[in-house]
Write a protein that binds this DNA or RNA. Sequence first.
DNA 1: TGGATTTGACCGCC
DNA 2: GGCGGTCAAATCCA
Length: 318
Amino acid sequence: MESEAYWRMSRELEADELQHLLFFRPSLTQQATSSGECLPPAGVTKTVSGGGRRRGRKRLRPADNNNVKLRRRLQEEDDHLQEVADGAANSKPLPRPCTKTSRRKQQTTTSTMVTTVPDFDGYQWRKYGQKQIEGAKYPRSYYRCTNSTEQGCQAKKTVQRNDDDGGAAATRYTVSYISEHTCKSINESVAPVILETTVRTSTNQPIATVGSCSAESPAISSTTSDIITASTWSSGETSRSDCSWDSTSTITPAMATNYSGNIINGGVDVEEMDLIRGPIRSPVHIMADGNYWMDDLLLNNGFMDDTILFNGSICQLF
DNA sequence: TGGATTTGACCGCC
DNA sequence: GGCGGTCAAATCCA
């Protein structure tokens, strides 16, 4: 059916090339620090306003006896306030409106994961935390939608630099989106240009695709990989019209047939990259292992309609 | 001065 | 108990 129509060429790209090519508007991002800190994704408010800086609060160190006392005192104050509040409510302990527990449970049931480069995605994000993750070379940054307070948007994302090249190879990032936006994009013309959405119901369950993906989007899933994708396109984006993906379909690695010996290994050479002009506004998938693949590359290399790049190899979808 | 980032402490889950 | 996610005071900057 769609075998006559070629719509995809997948590539492995170095991250710097990707970022360079994907900044289809004057870059609002600042360069990653030499310390390996995560590059603030474009769209983060800071990058627009240019504000914000360093050094967090001087917090109490656990080893400090005085701090222990102070913390205890603060805890007592909290307890006292709680007692007052409880008293005001007929001595009935009021359930906290939104505990961490409830928040996390909400997230796990509705979480979506998207992988893409830390590029502008049409939304403004505010960084609310950074954490050094066990086994990770670089810290993970936590962002929430700036509309989380005004519009109650639950969207969050984490950005983690995941290259371990010792500085020689290109920078690679893993971006995870949690929950979907309930707010409006700040720039609809570019908003969902590059978005890969994955719904993960649980770590051991198959991953469901997101309903927002259009019929032309393939869904790729894996029971072991932490990357399952269902592409979305913005209203202003040129959608593929020549493909007929079932938006609900999924595949697993076992269902994928490897196309051996094709050109996709080793990235795009400079000559090929030079052929690409203008913004690449296509979904760019960053696998957990650092591999990349793209939909809708501007070049059509004649791959079959139902092929993808999976774990660095061209795979055929059934 | 307001808004955004930084960063260590806090907290819940596994 | 360890780890990851979140909080929030401190800080920075336009």
